[in-house]
Design a protein around this nucleic acid. Structure first.
Lengths: 207, 207
DNA sequence: ATTCCCGTCAACCGATCGGCTGATCCGCCG
DNA sequence: CGGCGGATCAGCCGATCGGTTGACGGGAAT
């Protein structure tokens, strides 16, 4: 029998944090060494407590899970990070993976799936639920929008015309039209209304 | 000291269900008599166990929390229902209140808020977090859409033109234009793109 | 150094939208 | 019975969109 896996847990919902801790503690091979209610507290906790795995929510007040992951992974011997969240919008998943997360699970997962994932990432493996992987592929199919295009898409959601969007961004209406066309191509739609709808669906606009 | 408040808890996420139960049980004035993982099991549980308060999520596989609430409230001496969910879309809240819920809290709430709410609804009072009440007023401001208008809004989200929407619904394009105008008036927007965006925001399209 | 992508702008044209006014029919409620 | 709201349809007009093609400059990559 080896030493237990040392885990730090972060979630801004006290109820969920409590449920997670007691669930993890019920496994004799896992030991929760600290908890946090937001990203900043999580980063601080990883500096004060040696641990193998961090289990964290993504959407938290102040510093989010993605930023926290980035900071944690910069350490000398960083722990693995397992994202455990409610949402599976492709943009969220992408952000987490780019930040250096080793796994991405949904809170709908069964306890034994979560425990298995914690052990897997502790071993250095990756853990991603099939549903999440599928959502991620959606985003990869529709190649990513550039920062400028996301800006335009945001203003489209607000109901701006090409001219008013141009005024807002300090560029010409013709340029906005070009961006809009590129957005259509990348999202596979033919009009601004469904562009905004799919943008929201992919999580490009909610964050 | 009176008898403890008998509570039945329902949530499809095992982690959250566990956290809720242990949190509620930590209060000596509250006793959890049963749990359920979906609406159907919840309704069955209320028939097998006498209880004062039901604490339930809204979005669950199969029978959702709103339908379950409706069925529970039809009983002779129905328990009060406290909705505890992640989402605060006005349409969700409205649905729950119409179904007969006595309270609506967000999972982000602090444990003592939740405990206070359980005690409040057990006494017959209503419990609604300020944030939720505010969101609800949003929906009341923008008067409700008719069933037909919601149909049209759904097809607008898919990117349909007035003509194609008319073909889909078996009505003329002119009629669709009228519906669209009414939707604009009710939602306070001037174009279909922001109509769809606010429709999604109000939860009129996600359900 | 050349290529590729991004962002910028231009002109043209048909299709569609958004705003307006007004009309008919039906069911419900008082 | 009369009124009210929902659903249906019509025509008109300017504004805007969506599609297309082409162009220029800058930065990053190879």
């Amino acid at each position: 029998m080896t030493d237990p896996i040392r885990v730090i847990v972060a979630d801004d919902h006290p109820v969920i944090l409590g449920g997670l801790v007691s669930m993890l503690e019920s496994d004799p091979g896992i030991s929760v060494v600290a908890t946090a209610a937001d990203g900043a507290a999580l980063v601080a906790a990883t500096r004060q407590h040696a641990c193998d795995v961090v289990v964290t929510d993504l959407r938290m007040p102040g510093t989010g899970g993605a930023d926290a992951t980035r900071q944690i992974r910069r350490a000398a011997h960083p722990p693995r990070v397992l994202i455990l969240t409610t949402y599976d919008s492709p943009a969220d998943v992408m952000q987490a993976v780019e930040a250096g997360a080793s796994g991405y699970l949904l809170k709908a997962a069964q306890p034994r799936e979560i425990l298995a994932a914690v052990r897997a990432v502790a071993r250095g493996e990756r853990a991603m639920s099939p549903a999440v992987a599928q959502r991620l592929s959606q985003l990869q199919d529709s190649e990513q929008l550039t920062a400028r295009e996301v800006q335009v898409l945001r203003l489209m959601r607000a109901g701006g015309t090409n001219a008013s969007i141009g005024a807002e961004l300090g560029i010409g209406a013709a340029t906005v039209k070009t961006h809009v066309q590129h957005i259509f191509d990348k999202l596979g739609v033919r009009d601004r209304t469904s562009a905004v709808a799919t943008g929201i669906d992919l999580g490009l606009l909610s964050a």
